[in-house]
């Protein structure tokens, strides 16, 4: 005979029939809501950038080292004297300073993993060694002239070149802010990500008004909409923004923003 006043006691093996049916229904609803919630969250999250980090893939590169303001490798392009600039970083959130120390202007062979996005490239360096012998194809890479583009005022987001190019997804915005601070304070080159009127994205390497590195000075502006006025030059395939970080300023406060 069914208990007309069923009572649940958790340590008993059997749950009263009248309670069991309702509990099964509640659990089924809970599981269904959980799965539905997960699906909605999955589809509702924003898309991620297309950057690629060839983690675990070791490539070899030949080029000329730039030591300052940030470690870079200039590699011959495929069209004559054009060069392709590759930022250099060490494993993790550390710049490649220890790899390029004393190698400025030297022809080197680098092994490492490629990171790339939006025509920007970086190598996570595993080894680096000077090339002994024929380096004719590397001559003149460093002497490419800088073309002044004039004084500009740009609004964008300061990102670390490693994560944003593909090491992290997402590699920009508030969720990534602390990581970008860690990377840039660790020596990785800071760049200003700006959206163009054509809906594309440009990246400008940030240096001081005198061309010096500015890692420490930009930390408080990272992942915030920031306006920077300075001299813009094109050096080969790279845009460089010369500006004193003391003149940077935040332009919007709020929970979200749209780069323009």
């Amino acid at each position: 005979m069914a208990d007309r006043d069923p009572f649940y006691v958790g340590y008993l093996d059997r749950i009263p029939a009248g309670i069991a049916g309702r509990t099964r229904l509640a659990v089924a609803i809970l599981l269904a809501v959980g799965i539905a919630l997960g699906l909605v969250l999955t589809f509702a999250q924003s898309s991620f950038d297309e950057g690629v980090f060839e983690f675990g893939v070791d490539r070899e590169f030949r080029g000329v080292v730039i030591e300052k303001p940030y470690p870079m490798l200039l590699i011959p392009g495929t069209s004559g004297d054009a060069r392709v600039t590759h930022y250099l970083a060490a494993y993790g959130k550390i710049g490649a300073g220890k790899f390029v120390d004393g190698l400025d202007g030297q022809s080197v062979r680098v092994t490492g993993s490629l990171i790339y996005n939006d025509q920007q490239r970086m190598i996570e360096v595993h080894t680096i060694e000077k090339i002994e012998g024929d380096t004719d194809d590397l001559k003149g890479l460093k002497t490419a002239a800088e073309t002044p583009l004039g004084r500009m005022t740009l609004t964008g987001e300061i990102v670390d070149s490693k994560c944003h190019l593909g090491a992290m997804k997402p590699g920009r915005g508030k969720p990534h802010k602390a990581c970008a601070i860690r990377c840039i304070s660790g020596g990785i080159a800071p760049v200003l990500r700006v959206a163009t009127h054509a809906g594309e994205v440009d990246y400008l390497l940030l240096v001081g008004a005198d061309g010096s590195r500015v890692n420490r000075d930009v930390l408080k502006f990272i992942a915030e909409p920031v306006e920077i006025s300075g001299e813009v030059v094109r050096a080969g395939d790279q845009l460089i923004l010369y500006a004193d970080p003391a003149t940077y300023r935040r332009v919007v406060t709020g929970s979200t923003y749209e780069l323009r």
Binding site: Y91, G92, K93, I94, M168, K174, H176, K177, A178, C179, I181, R182, C183, S185, G186, G187, K220, E224, V252, T253, G254, S255, Y257
Partner: peptide
């Protein structure tokens, strides 16, 4: 993901990377 392999201890990094309390948009959430 966000704090290891850097130039400070990861737990120190969580507490010290972003100390900007000046606005909600900058407020350290981690």
């Amino acid at each position: 993901q966000f704090h290891a392999l850097g130039n400070v201890n990861p737990l120190v990094s969580v507490l010290s990377s972003n100390t900007d309390l000046s606005s909600l948009s900058a407020f350290p959430f981690q």
